[in-house]
Amino acid sequence: MSSIGSREILRFSVNGRSHELLVKPYATLLEVLREDLRLTGTKHGCEAGECGACVVLVDGTPQLSCLVLPGQVEGSEITTIEGVSDGGTLHPVQQALMDHGALQCGYCTPGMVLSSKALLDSNPTPSREEIKEALSGNLCRCTGYVSIIEAVEDAGRAMA
């Protein structure tokens, strides 16, 4: 990364689009996405890595965007919730969450979708235990988790 005054130039790609941004080196990826790029689909619930609401994919891997610095994603490909569905078609994870009523207030949903997508991308037929483990850092206060597990199982089947 190169610096201009107290700012740094961040080159990375978000949802398939390349960006060259002047960012504060101490602004987290969460802040860069929400405030610099106005991609507010990425939520925040604690900003300390304790709730999972801000999960995005960095080169396909779920990361807590509240604990990632711009310098750590230089050259990376970021996927946020805005980049999951294909045009008007929901991703199978999104479709399954909808069909199973596995979202209520919807605030944990973006993180849940991205964690689930990453799981199914690497393991399309996870067991219930594997689903629970993979999503165990994503807190939800509405659903009781039960329907999310069912939805992710179904989404895996749909993707297979």
């Binding site: 990364m1 101490y26 602004a27």
Partner: peptide
């Protein structure tokens, strides 16, 4: 939002 204080970031 809980934010970081200012610091310089070095990438040796």
């Amino acid at each position: 939002m809980l934010r970081l204080p200012r610091f310089s970031y070095l990438r040796p």
